[in-house]
Design a protein around this nucleic acid. Structure first.
Lengths: 180, 180, 180, 180
DNA sequence: GATGAATGAGAATTCATTCAT
DNA sequence: TATGAATGAATTCTCATTCAT
């Protein structure tokens, strides 16, 4: 009833899926939860995406390529004139801030899921590659960028998992050693 | 039928849970799957562990304290007379070997799942702390150990998630910069 | 297997639920028992009624509005030309007849269950209100009707719960005092 | 371990059962809930009461005979020098007060359960009989007492189920008509 | 195309009761 | 005698997917 013509239906479903995963984790994604979040009939989600995996993949792919994404926001920190290390320190500090960790968690959700689901691995790999590529524009070589990404991921994990407060000096020192 | 008296039942359930998580990830853990893996009636798992979270916690606690655990194996690498960096390089190289990544994946399942499940967080944090403590015996200060753990975590994630082959020279260089 | 197209499915489930409650009380109502009574797969009951409470509410709402319901039958007694008191005496007498107390029990199951389940309360209250409204057409004021309903409820409870035989004279006297 | 000698164990279990039923209804009664409430091992409840029904019956019987019971409290209202009607008005008013309806609910739980469980019917009947006996000491004959009990039960039901505020004048008028 | 209904499997729990010790 | 463990059935509820319309 009603809503017969709705061209962006498919896109709205993907958007809703991102919202759901972002809020409740990948476990929270179901046809039902997405249909509700998108305000779309249940059958519509299975019509546009044959399986739930298809939907998940579409959603995660979009997260990575979305210009408004987490990743894109890195540039904001790096381009602002300060040194690379200073930019990264502020980036980490903001990520660790308790108010909105959903972006970071979304990234780690992807990593976690990719550990067990082969179809997601390329997406996770692409996500890591893009980070490296981005950082490589500011480092002396690719290897340094890769190391930096590893360090950043590890530091964020520690910040999120342990209760330790953000120690700016320590983080800066760590980054500085790698940047060289 | 039969098997009315069975001490160690509880322990066998925990062991089975670890096996299940190790093989199928945390998503694969259910009362049913554990009961099957432990060759125990379904009700038995819920008798000993009222909720699935309880079981998960017991399992992961044991992973951490298990003398055969991933963490314990680190000492093997570090104590073997070689330099810290050399030891860690070999550690990472072995972890990256494709034949048995289940130990490492198990660790990361734990870390990453803890981001969404509050009750797991303390356990994951403890696991991180133990790694830091262990490494700190070989570094000049705690901060260096913490940074090393972050770097190692990030590098392992990259190894697990991307198809890139293990690049010994690059890894050694990265570690060396942090060890200083 | 078969039966993919089945309109009225929902309605049949509600009917089955009423039958189950009527025969086994509210405690006897479960997704399983309803599915069996309606000859419908288990999942079908949960599809149409997400929670058991939803089903219970739908069932009881129907009991109230069913033209064949207990309540509707009251009119039969009241409209038959005799005095109000005489009509009520016969109503109670018939209700007390041991052959079919299931209708009355169903009503009281509802009332009393509503005391512990908030969502049922409005329905029970509505049921009471309708009785009052009905009786008020035959009494001098609303207050009398309300009192009559209370007395009738109490008398029926006594009839159902104690083994005492129906004492027509006593019941008539009681009603007469309230009708005034 | 410990707590080997505990003579009142049985009694404490009954007390706990009353507490559980009073708080969560008869549905809430289980070996587990009672064991927890009595701070007693699970096996202890099945040892002292072969089936759950036995325990329920013991508990409800005690509720009725307990000198501190709801029923006994009626005397407080009736003996205080005021007229029977005034006493009952205040009794009802207090019962309807929202702060502690657990006593009344417990009584109606008993009624409800007795509608469907034969073994409970004698207990409910006895409960009603005791109320009648008590009131009969203040009324001109047994029939009046029985009618009063019916009216009171019905009025309490209405008070508990509908949101209507307690209307003292109306209740007094209703009682007065029956008392005569 | 689009969708509400259908369904069977599986999820976590709860539980009364039995039994070995 | 007392009790922790055991167990199998049942509970509610969720879900991915299929299908008739």
């Amino acid at each position: 009833m009603a809503r017969r013509y709705d061209p962006d239906r498919r896109q709205r479903i993907v958007d809703a899926a991102i919202r759901v995963v972002s809020e409740h984790g990948i476990d929270g994604l179901s046809h039902r939860s997405v249909a509700a979040a998108a305000d779309v009939p249940l059958g519509s989600t299975t019509y546009h995406f044959a399986t739930l995996d298809d939907l998940l993949i579409a959603a995660l792919r979009q997260v990575n390529s979305d210009p408004a994404s987490f990743l894109a926001s890195w540039e904001h920190y790096l381009e602002s004139g300060q040194s690379l290390v200073d930019g990264l320190v502020r980036l980490l500090e903001d990520c660790a801030a308790t108010d909105d960790r959903s972006h970071v968690r979304l990234e780690y959700d992807l990593y976690l899921a990719a550990l067990r689901r082969d179809r997601l691995q390329p997406i996770a790999a692409a996500c890591l590659d893009e980070m490296v590529e981005l950082l490589a524009r500011y480092t002396k070589d690719d290897a340094t960028a890769r190391t930096l990404v590893a360090l950043i991921d590890g530091l964020l994990l520690q910040l999120l998992l342990t209760g330790r407060p953000f120690d700016r000096a320590e983080v800066r020192a760590a980054l500085a050693r790698v940047v060289g």
